Simulated scan of single mutants.
Amino acid sequence: MQLQDKVIIITGGGQGLGRAMAEHLAARGARLALVDLNQERLDEAVAACMAAGSEVRAYLCNVAQEDQVVDMVTRVADDFGAIHGLVNNAGILRDGLLLKVRDGEISKLSLAQWQSVIDVNLTGVFLCTREVAAKMVERKNEGVIVNISSISRAGNIGQTNYSAAKAGVAAATVVWARELARYGIRVAGVAPGFIETEMTASMKPEALEKMTAGIPLKRMGRPQEIAHSVAYLFENDYYTGRILELDGGLRV
């Protein structure tokens, strides 16, 4: 699919990886619907993408809320007249060990920590994909859905909730690719490793050094490299039902 003038929704598009993807796709001529919960960040991202010459609109939406997702997708389709793509990027972290024992006292990963991550990182992907795919079929728009998974889908200590959600996203990607191909809809995913974001920038230098030492390329990935990969998945018409790993050679 050529990106010029294609309408693409990016969840979590106001910051971090989402904003990097937005700016990259905007520079390639895509028309963008940026979805986030932070209006200030959305406004900044919209301004940056418009500077690249793209048509961009902002939408406040909690992807874990069904009614909000249904309304957002309907508004995007009405505002732009079509939907050709979706990047399921919105996600949160609520890390913690399943159990922690200190001085004989046992603390547990809370149900709230578990459920909040599942709600956004897995249920949100389901809701957005379902509604966008339905709108594509309704309007007879062929398109592409890109899901952001993670190498943590293989299991990462302290991330029971996040690993489970990202594994679910990877599995669903294969299922949806097979189910939606008949409608001209491809579904693929990207599994980033450790990427230079605001979250990693706040880590202690010694922790960053230890993390980077385990990566064969000896550096973290850059947001622009993830954005480049997402553009590739949109443009390669034979890529579907697979997860593109982008981790510098790291396996967890």
Rank of each mutant, 00 (worst) to 15 (best):
V69C: 07
F126D: 05
S110D: 06
V137T: 11
I148P: 06
R102P: 00
G104H: 00
V137D: 04
C61F: 05
V146D: 03
G81W: 06
S116T: 14
C128K: 00
L93H: 12
A112D: 15
N88M: 05
L109H: 06
N88Y: 03
V144K: 02
L60A: 12
D95V: 09
V125P: 02
V76P: 07
A82E: 12
V101F: 02
A134F: 04
D103S: 10
S110L: 07
G81R: 01
L122I: 04
S150W: 07
A133K: 07
Q65F: 10
D95A: 14
E66H: 13
G143R: 00
R102L: 01
Q65E: 14
S54G: 10
N89P: 03
G124W: 12
M72T: 10
D71H: 14
L127E: 08
K140N: 14
T129A: 12
G124L: 11
R94Q: 15
E66S: 12
L109N: 02
N62K: 14
D103T: 02
F80I: 09
Y59F: 13
G53W: 03
V120L: 04
L127D: 08
E138F: 04
W114Y: 08
R130N: 10
Q68F: 06
D71G: 09
I106A: 09
G53T: 04
A64V: 07
I118N: 01
L86H: 03
S107G: 11
K135G: 05
S116Y: 08
A77E: 01
L60Q: 11
D78S: 12
R130G: 07
D103F: 00
D79F: 00
G124H: 11
N88S: 09
K135V: 10
G91C: 07
L98H: 08
V146C: 06
T123Q: 11
E142D: 13
I118T: 02
S54R: 11
K100T: 15
D79W: 00
G124N: 10
T123R: 14
V146I: 13
L60G: 08
I148Y: 07
V117A: 07
V69D: 06
D67S: 14
L109T: 03
H84E: 01
V70G: 06
V101N: 05
V70N: 13
A58N: 07
L109D: 02
C61D: 08
I83D: 00
D78C: 05
I148A: 09
G124I: 10
R57K: 15
Q65T: 14
L111P: 01
W114P: 00
L97Y: 12
I148W: 04
A133S: 12
Q113K: 15
G104V: 00
H84T: 00
G124P: 11
S54L: 05
D103A: 08
C128F: 00
M136T: 06
N141E: 13
M72H: 08
A112R: 11
Q68G: 14
N121W: 03
A134S: 14
S110C: 06
G96I: 08
N62R: 15
G104A: 02
R57W: 05
L111V: 15
I83F: 01
N141D: 13
